[in-house]
Amino acid sequence: MFHWLEKNPFFFAVGVFVVIAYAGIVTVVPDFMESARPLKGVKPYTTLQLAGRQIYIENDCNACHSQLIRPFKSETDRYGKYSLSGEYAYDRPFLWGSRRIGPDLHRVGNYRTTDWNENHMLDPESVVPGSIMPKYGFMFDKSMDFDTAYAEAYTVKKVFNVPYDKPGMPKLGTYEEAKKAAIKEAGAIVADMKDQAVKDAYKKGDIKEIVAIIAYLNSLK
C-alpha cells in the first residue's frame, strides 16, 4: 500500500484530503452544534449599534482590544462578569481579539459613559494620561454608513433567522422605518455629547461616525 501511494500522486492527494477532512469534522462539528444558542436576554444589535460595530471593525479596534473576559478573579475584578458563549450569538464576525494592547471591552458599556467616550475618542490622553491609543478625531467628521448597517441587519434576518421584529426584540422593519429608529436612537446620544459640530450635523439629519461607535460601545454590557 505504501509503495503504491508513493507513486500515485493523485491518490496521495486524495488520502491527505480525507485525513484532513475527517479531522475537521470530528474536532469541529460537534462544538459547532452545541454553542451559539443565544443566552436569554441577549438581543441582536440595532442598526445604529451595528453601524458602530462596522466602524469598530473598519478601524481594527480588535487589534488592540479583546472582548473576552476569562473566568479568573483578576479578570472579573477588572472587567466584570466573565463572558459566556451564548452572549456572542449575534456577533458576526466574533470580535474576541488576540491581544490586549488596551483593556478588554466586552462590558465597557457598564462603566463608561457617552461623555467619557466622546472625550476619549477625541483625545485619549485627556481622560487616561499615558494612553497610547491613537486619536480618532476623524470620526467626528465622517458620516456613518446607515445603508450598509441596514443591509447587514436585513441579511442576517433573512439568511440566518436573526430574530429582528420578534416580540421583545429590536425592530428592524423597512428601510425607512429603520432609518427613523436609528435617527431617534442617535438623538439620545447626541443629547449627551458636547461637540457642537456633531450636534449641528445631527439637526440636518447627518449622523457622524462617533455617534454610532458610542452607541455600540454603550451596548457592550
Binding site: 485525513v19 475527517y22 479531522a23 470530528v26 474536532t27 460537534p30 452544534m33 452545541e34
Partner: peptide, 21 residues
C-alpha cells in the same frame, strides 16, 4: 442529543489517533 454526539466524537477522535499512530 448532545451527550451522544459528544460520545461519538470522543470515540471518533480516539480511534483516529489509534489508526494514525
Amino acid at each position: 442529543d448532545m451527550e451522544l454526539i459528544r460520545t461519538l466524537q470522543g470515540w471518533g477522535y480516539v480511534s483516529m489517533i489509534f489508526i494514525l499512530t
